[in-house]
Design a protein around this nucleic acid. Structure first.
Lengths: 360, 360
DNA sequence: ATTCTCTGCTCATACGTATGAGCAGCGACT
DNA sequence: AGTCGCTGCTCATACGTATGAGCAGAGAAT
């Protein structure tokens, strides 16, 4: 049993200094490595280093943080549990990227798991205390992100980045988001290239910031390519069914291709079309503006959200903010890959169809 | 745009104090809630609280940590990436429990992801700095845990708990481990109850601390029940095949049941037995001393490692150490459930078999 | 009138580090 | 003899909080 006796108190720089016969600041400088600026000769440096070894001195990160304001600690705040029940969990892939990148640039991650409230909801402020403050900055993610908390965080000047677009009036928060706008436009372009002229957009009923991006991309591409937009009047689902009148219109050939906001919209769409005797993609093409699970029953034409890359870029953006405080940071767009599936084809050469608009 | 102008400097207690016309310590006491001990009347408390609200004051966790030594931050150090590629990952379930429990007791988690070294290996000490120090204590896990680092950590008096047994000579490190010993004994008991009298133990070649626990449980139960142990001379696999001589002995009825250290040993075992015309469990029973993937091709009789619970207990144990520093903490054993599968049955009533030893 | 007790605070310090400013000593140069 | 410049450090302070000790004043008791 040669165990070192448990030290009552960890050695500090002043202990090292005493042993080496120098001042605490000399020790600090040697550790900080600015021996040139402080003009400490090699002999003294070695003496100090020996003392450090002998005492087993280890810098105190808390004191460092207090002094310098930096920690190499990056926060991750999710509004739900971080370790997901299912690997397919929405967050999961983001976290993979976050951890990967943090490791590469030698930072540690703080997972803010404590709820603080009795309601069990995760919040940033717990009885007025910004818990994130331990970390140099934080990456926030989660659909339920409380907008008031984000505004307060921003007002407090806390450096953070949000994964996914989140807009709060009167506040400029930095987001890292998939480039839905370009991706939506690319999908419309592809449909146009194939000869489609009349297309529709099926949106989710839920109001969400990222919807605006997709919609914008869709609309600009529709205008640019001179297409006709025939979207349903009522957005999304109604009692599990889509707008019947609009589906009937699709059946009469009013629309030859549909862009759906999400996969869960595409399935009822396909059902509704099947009810009316239409087959995808022979009669109607369908593309999905969202990543699709690899084991989905239908191989949708869709776009793939680069979640891993988004996570990585969130870290880089955050660290950029820390390095250049005060500088306003623009949102970061991450390109989406358009995946070709089995649900998009050329439009049928029906009575109402001609290929005047085709660029192929 | 009514955004609060970005404060150059976050307000501190002294700012609050000035506004409320009191001293900094009064503010600290009000925040700390020990207004009784400090005899601060309600009116003053309210004045201070108003000032806190007006300035949007938020305590600085770093300063707090420096002063009190506590953070409500618990470290998690894994020697590989935390967010696993596969959900079946060994660590995964532990982390689930860790996060769950940390959330319940209102602590945050620090994920030590940084490598510090150029070799890309995750280490506790990076150029002599104990990175874990930011957190109040840490849970370590990972088969590759460097023993020297553990010893140093212990010598430094850093509070930590290791998931899985890890022994370092001359050092007493606290582990939270599945109770393999009892589980192995329970499995042997079950075999004995079924009437087996001659059994063997198939161990993994890899030297590992937890092996000792299992072996101990096995041996004590074998002795207690008066069984005969006929284990192979050579442990584990050799060139992908098990000890042939021993397998032949099993084929002649020398052994009617085998306890295997791990699932990957059980498969070649079953193959070897099949080669000799034996069927599991009709001719030979096989039990596995390790959890088995739910989608395994064979429904082994095995024991289930309560990983989630181990994670939770690791947190509790760690917090206990923080609350009572100095107290030695015994290892924590977590009971394993023995799962009945389809690979254990009563021994065949062969020429060499009698039921004298059966207690059923 | 003096002492005692209680209230309502304040003072001072410690936690461990980083860093700008400065100082003593020495050799060199004018 | 004076001063310039360099070396090799040290001094002092700030970061923001928590806390033991103590102090001034008011009222009560003797």
């Amino acid at each position: 049993m040669t165990t070192t006796p448990r030290r009552a108190r960890a050695p500090r720089q002043s202990d090292v200094a005493r042993l080496a016969g120098v001042s605490q600041s000399a020790v600090s400088r040697v550790i900080g490595g600015d021996t040139d600026a402080a003009r400490i000769p090699e002999a003294t440096v070695r003496r100090i280093q020996d003392a450090i070894k002998e005492l087993g001195y280890v810098p105190n990160p808390t004191a460092r943080k207090l002094r310098t304001g930096r920690n190499r600690l990056l926060g991750v705040h999710t509004f739900e549990a971080v370790f997901p029940r299912a690997r397919e969990d929405f967050y999961f892939e983001f976290l993979l990227g976050i951890e990967e990148r943090a490791e590469e640039i030698d930072h540690d991650l703080v997972l803010f798991t404590s709820t603080g409230g009795s309601d069990g909801r995760r919040r940033v402020y717990r009885d007025g205390v910004n818990r994130l403050n331990v970390a140099d900055g934080a990456v926030l993610l989660g659909v339920a992100a409380d907008r008031a908390e984000l505004a307060r965080l921003e007002a407090d000047g806390y450096p953070f980045v949000h994964i996914g677009r989140r807009e709060v009036p009167g506040t400029r928060i930095t987001c890292v988001v998939p480039d839905y706008e370009s991706a939506a436009a690319a999908i419309v372009d592809r449909l146009a290239d194939l000869g489609h002229e009349r297309i529709g957009y099926l949106r989710a009923g839920i109001e969400e910031e990222s919807y605006a991006d997709r919609r914008r991309g869709y609309e600009s591409a529709v205008a640019r390519r001179g297409l006709r937009d025939v979207s349903p009047a009522s957005p999304g689902l109604e009692e599990g069914r889509l707008d019947a009148a609009w589906l009937d219109a699709v059946a009469t050939g009013e629309v030859t291709a549909v862009v759906a906001d999400a996969e869960w919209l595409a399935h009822p769409l396909a059902d509704g079309l099947a009810d009316r005797g239409l087959t995808v993609p022979r009669d109607v093409s369908v593309a999905v503006l969202e990543g699709v699970a690899p084991d989905a029953p239908v191989r949708w034409d869709c776009l793939q959200i680069p979640r891993r890359e988004v996570g990585r870029l969130a870290i880089d953006t955050l660290v950029g903010m820390l390095d250049e405080p005060g500088e306003p940071v623009a949102d970061v767009l991450v390109e989406c890959v358009v995946v070709e599936g089995e649900t998009v084809a050329a439009p049928p050469a029906g009575p109402s169809g001609d290929t005047r608009g085709s660029t192929v």
